[in-house]
C-alpha cells in the first residue's frame, strides 16, 4: 500500500440536494463536504440513516449530479460513471438472468476497454478465484446464498482493475457470521490489490476493522463531523488482539458517541 501518494479523490465544498417531488422543496443531503482520499487508502463513512453517505458515494461514482462544489478523481472532474471507479451494492444488484460468469463479465460488455478476449477470460477466472467462487461460473445468482452473491458483486467490481472501489453498505443484508468472513475477505482483497476504497457502513466495528480513516457524517444536512484515524496493523480481521485491545474500545466508544448524537436527531422525526 502506498498511503503517501497524493490524493486520488478530492471533494471540495461538495453540496448535493434532492427535490422533494410532492412539496416542491429541496432537501440538502450533503453540505460543503471537503474530503481527500489518498491512493490506496481505505476510507469508511459512518453516520445516521439519511445523512447523505450514499449521495457522497454516488457523486464519486457519477450517478448523482452535484449541486455546487466539485468532486475530482485524479484531478479530473467527475461528470459520469467511468471504468476507473467500480461499485459494490447493498442489494448485490446482480442481473438475475445471467450466470455468475456473465455477471462478472458485464463491465467489459458495456464499455470497450481495449482488453483482449483471452485477457477477459483470464481476469474472470482471477477475480472468481480471488473471491473464492471458482467452480460457480455457471450458477445463477438465485442459486447462491447472500454472502456468495455479494462475492460475485465484488468480483464484478474488480474485473476492470478499477483504481477506486466504492461500496455502499455491502454487507448490511448478510448474516452476522458470513459478514465477518466477508469483512476478512474484503480486507484481504484490498490488501492484495492495493485498491483505494470508499466504504459505507452502519456498523462501527466494521468501520474500525476495515478503515484507515473513519469519517463521521452528521445528520441533515450531511457534513463531515469528525475524521478518526485508525492505526491498527493489518490484517486486523484475523488478529484477535485488535478487537480486545484498550485502544479499540476507546475508538469504538468515541465513534459511537459521535454517531449517537446524530442518530438521536433522526429519532426526533424529520
Amino acid at each position: 500500500m502506498s498511503l503517501n501518494n497524493e490524493p486520488i479523490i478530492v471533494a471540495k465544498d461538495l453540496t448535493i440536494s434532492y427535490e422533494l417531488h410532492r412539496e416542491r422543496k429541496k432537501l440538502t443531503a450533503l453540505q460543503d463536504i471537503n474530503l481527500e482520499v489518498k491512493a490506496g487508502e481505505f476510507v469508511v463513512l459512518v453516520g445516521p440513516s439519511g445523512c447523505g453517505k450514499t449521495s457522497f458515494i454516488n457523486a464519486i461514482s457519477g450517478l448523482v449530479p452535484k449541486e455546487t462544489g466539485s468532486v475530482t478523481v485524479r484531478g479530473e472532474e467527475v461528470t459520469g460513471p467511468g471504468p476507473d471507479r467500480a461499485m459494490v451494492f447493498q442489494d448485490y444488484a446482480l442481473l438475475p438472468w445471467r450466470t455468475v460468469e456473465s455477471n462478472v463479465r458485464m463491465p467489459f460488455e458495456f464499455q470497450d476497454l481495449g482488453v483482449s478476449e483471452a485477457e477477459k477470460k483470464k481476469r474472470v477466472q482471477e477475480c472468481l478465484e480471488l473471491v473464492d467462487l471458482d467452480g460457480f461460473e455457471k450458477s445463477f445468482p438465485y442459486e447462491l446464498s447472500g454472502g456468495m452473491k455479494q462475492r460475485v458483486g465484488i468480483a464484478r467490481a474488480l474485473i476492470t482493475h478499477p483504481d477506486i472501489l466504492l461500496a455502499d453498505e455491502p454487507f448490511a443484508a448478510i448474516d452476522a457470521m458470513t459478514r465477518e468472513a466477508m469483512q476478512a475477505e474484503m480486507e484481504r482483497i484490498v490488501m492484495e490489490t492495493g485498491q483505494t476504497c470508499v466504504f459505507i457502513t452502519h456498523s462501527i466495528d466494521e468501520a474500525i476493522l476495515l478503515g484507515d480513516r473513519v469519517v463521521v457524517i452528521s445528520y441533515r444536512p450531511g457534513k463531515v463531523k469528525e475524521i478518526v484515524d485508525i492505526n491498527f496493523p493489518r490484517p486486523r480481521m484475523s488478529n484477535s488482539e485488535v478487537k480486545t485491545s484498550r485502544e479499540y474500545a476507546q475508538i469504538r466508544d468515541h465513534i459511537w458517541k459521535l454517531v449517537k448524537d446524530e442518530a438521536s436527531q433522526t429519532n426526533r422525526g424529520e
Binding site: 461514482s61 450517478l63 467511468g82 451494492f89 447493498q90 446482480l94 442481473l95 458485464m106 476492470t160
Partner: peptide, 23 residues
C-alpha cells in the same frame, strides 16, 4: 439498483434498455 449497477459499469442508454430493461 440493476439500472444503477449497469450505469456504473458503463452502460449507455441503449444498453440499459437492451441488456437490463428488456430481460
Amino acid at each position: 439498483s440493476l439500472l444503477a449497477a449497469a450505469r456504473v459499469f458503463g452502460a449507455n442508454r441503449r444498453q440499459l434498455y437492451v441488456k437490463v430493461v428488456l430481460p
